[in-house]
Amino acid sequence: MQDLASAFATALALIAAGDRSVAQIVLLSLRVSLTALMVAALVGLPLGALLAVTRFPGRRVIVVVLNALMGLPPVVAGLLIYLLLSRSGPLGPLGLLFTPTAMVIAQAVLITPILAALTRQVLEGLWDEYAEQLRSFGASAARAVPTLLWDGRFALLTVLLAGFGRASAEVGAVMIVGGNIEGFTRVMTTAIALETSKGDLPLALALGMILMLIVVAVNVLAQGLRDAAGRWTG
């Protein structure tokens, strides 16, 4: 209990003081996770929508693989990307290992299957409703994809939030490919892991509280947006 109280006090003190290194870590966390979310959304949303509207041989296999990839252990993803980006790996010449870009790649790889699988689920319901009408208008499956993505935008916001949550809470992969370098690739989760390993549990917990606060704030913002717009479109 004392640890918890002390963690809470530390968290408040860190926020109140506007601690520069904490602020830097928070900003990097947001930048990395939001960039990863954007990249993953560009691939995952259209892919999920396409899977929702098309029926082709092998589609079920892709759906099963996507669902399985949702459970891809971050450490495994991190290791694969480490080996790819390492100077001795195929993408070594890019020099991306131990950079924020490597962390973006790792998080994007982790959440793309989540976004695609959830998007497919959300849009399949919408497609059931729209399919006949859109085909009556002469819309091809490819043309239906942007329509569904746009009309499902508020449900997809929840999908994006799930992706963001997973990305920002992830530690195993970014630790491996980012290296947790102070002032360069240290994000909230790796900082928490570091403080835990240094035995500074109150500080670790305080950072955890700040991370939760950020995630909650992002969710509240998105939910508010969704509600406001939802009232409009019905």
């Binding site: 960039t35 954007m38 990249v39 991306l96 973006v104 942007p146």
Partner: peptide, 29 residues
């Protein structure tokens, strides 16, 4: 719709480009 998607794509590309530029300072690992 398509314009929006294009804009998002551009934004993402810029964000990606912006990350490595931070690495331009002289540094060793």
């Amino acid at each position: 719709m398509i314009t929006i998607m294009r804009r998002t794509a551009l934004g993402a590309a810029f964000a990606l480009l912006a990350l490595p530029t931070l690495a331009q300072e002289r540094s060793i690992t």
